[in-house]
């Protein structure tokens, strides 16, 4: 195999013995083989990341059907009331119970089931925040990068700098704490909190994405084909929308999509750990909650390790996936 085209070939070597059909078939076959070959170099990051992603999606779908109650089978478990009061994580019902895969959580439910159901806490809000960040980030970045020089670029850059000057977590806490403080209905409060978390994180991530798009669009701006396209009469919107963004910026967007997804998991679990006023309260399972609840378990018990591994593993997997996909599509383009 000579993928790098290093072996010396005499001119006209192939054309002597291949018919037209044979040449076409050879060409098509070569294309298919090259595509498969690219995937042959699948590195461990891509594999790991894909596994994590599939697990997350699978868990989320399973979580629709699992109601934690239904998985509890013939177990005589003493349940505590399940609510953890804000700030004091006192519930410590980590008595080990036989028969469950990972043991039970502080409420006595199966830890596996709770882990799976906890994906509900972040999955859809993460998608929302990714959507917001991608939409506004692309919009602002493309505008700033395409219409260079002049008020539009500098004002957009200023806006992005202003947004970027707040620490992201502070913005999220401000929104979540402040906006929800007056809502007294706990059910609505959780939904509102997650929604605000998603929105604020999306907005806070916009500068990062916009900067990446800005640099990419700026790089293409200087290419010749933009001039040619303009000369052909294509509108700016079409040039920007299709030629630059769709054809060339997709790897950047894909990479940041996965990064942000992982980052949202991080934020949601952190805030849930902090307490019910900031994140998801104790009655609703979340990985952060699980960690906060089990304060009497030992360092290497399942109750401590399982949520930690879940959190670290999913963030790691998504980050790796973002890296691998970004690199793969970059390579394919050039």
């Amino acid at each position: 195999m000579d993928p790098n085209n290093l072996i010396h070939r005499d001119p006209g070597e192939e054309s002597e013995d291949a018919t037209l059909a044979g040449k076409i078939a050879q060409g098509a076959l070569k294309d298919i083989i090259t595509t498969i070959l690219r995937w042959r170099h699948a590195d461990i990051r891509l594999i790991f990341g894909t596994i994590v992603l599939l697990l997350l999606v699978g868990f989320r779908i399973a979580a629709i059907f699992i109601d934690v109650d239904t998985l509890e089978t013939h177990l005589d478990v003493g349940r505590s009331s399940g609510f953890s009061t804000g700030g004091g994580f006192q519930t410590t019902n980590c008595r080990p119970v036989e028969g469950l895969l990972l043991g039970n959580d502080r409420n006595g439910y199966s830890l596996t089931a709770t882990l799976v159901e906890a994906t509900q806490a972040f999955f859809l809000p993460a998608l929302l925040s990714c959507g917001i960040a991608l939409f506004f980030g692309t919009l602002l970045g493309a505008i700033a990068g395409y219409f260079r020089g002049g008020l539009l670029e500098s004002s957009t850059k200023l806006l992005l700098t202003v947004i970027a000057s707040y620490p992201r977590l502070i913005l999220v806490i401000v929104a979540v704490g402040f906006f929800v403080a007056y809502l007294h209905d706990p059910g609505r409060a959780v939904g509102m909190r997650l929604f605000l978390m998603a929105m604020m994180l999306g907005v806070a991530y916009v500068p990062v994405l916009a900067l990446a798009i800005y640099q990419k669009v700026g790089a293409f701006q200087r290419e010749q084909f933009i001039e040619a396209a303009r000369a052909h009469g294509l509108s700016d919107v079409r040039i920007l929308g299709y030629h630059i963004l769709w054809a060339n910026c997709m790897p950047v967007l894909a990479r940041h999509f996965f990064y942000l997804f992982g980052y949202f998991i991080l934020v949601e679990t952190s805030l849930s750990y902090l307490g019910p006023e900031y994140g998801v309260p104790g009655s609703i399972p979340s990985w952060g909650n699980l960690l906060a609840g089990c304060s009497k378990g030992e360092l290497f018990s399942a109750a401590v390790m399982a949520p930690s591994v879940a959190i670290v593993g999913s963030i790691l997997g998504l980050t790796f996936l973002g890296d691998a996909i970004g690199e793969r599509f970059e390579r394919g383009r050039t």
């Binding site: 290093l6 072996i7 010396h8 070939r9 005499d10 001119p11 006209g12």
Partner: peptide
């Protein structure tokens, strides 16, 4: 015709004289 134009740069490996093309 019959002689490779100056497209080729970069290293190649192979049997025989690589300049023959």
């Amino acid at each position: 015709g019959g002689v490779e134009k100056t497209g080729g740069t970069g290293v190649v490996v192979g049997k025989g004289c690589i300049y023959r093309s």
